[in-house]
């Protein structure tokens, strides 16, 4: 991953999301140790305090747990927590933007539903 530094999303949030994606894709399993703040700093060329902040978001959300002096490890239910969080926040935000744009363009709900269905059908068709 290359960090997006144009200011749209804080770096530590990008780090947290990157780790989440790594966990979802199976690069890290339950109870496996994830990168330390120093490893993340080296990988992404960022200040280790920023990397720590990214790790701490995940620890606060119980996606990771801390072992004193050993580092951060993947929780048992990390996958469910990540999926849940993304549904509640990321997806909700995307839907909000969608509804807002539809309103601006005077597009009815039915039309929006149809567009969603069309996109899905196209994907399944290919």
């Amino acid at each position: 991953m290359i960090l997006n530094t144009d200011g749209t999303k804080p770096i530590y949030v990008q780090i947290a999301e990157w780790l989440e994606t790594e966990i979802l894709s199976g690069s890290f399993n339950s109870d496996q140790k994830v990168y330390s703040q120093y490893q993340l700093a080296e990988i992404f060329n960022i200040n280790p305090a920023t990397a720590a902040k990214g790790l701490n978001i995940l620890a606060d959300g119980d996606v990771l747990y801390k072992k004193r002096g050993l580092g951060m490890f993947v929780s048992n239910d990390a996958r469910e927590r990540i999926l849940n969080k993304r549904k509640k926040h990321t997806l909700k935000k995307l839907v909000q933007d969608l509804v807002l744009e539809a309103e601006r363009l005077n597009v009815s709900e039915e039309e929006v539903f149809d567009m969603i269905k069309n996109v899905k059908r196209n994907w399944e068709g290919t």
């Binding site: 960090l3 530094t5 770096i11 992404f44 060329n45 960022i46 200040n47 305090a49 920023t50």
Partner: peptide
């Protein structure tokens, strides 16, 4: 700043 901000605490 845009060049160095990621390095800074």
């Amino acid at each position: 700043l845009e060049e160095i901000e990621d390095l800074l605490e």
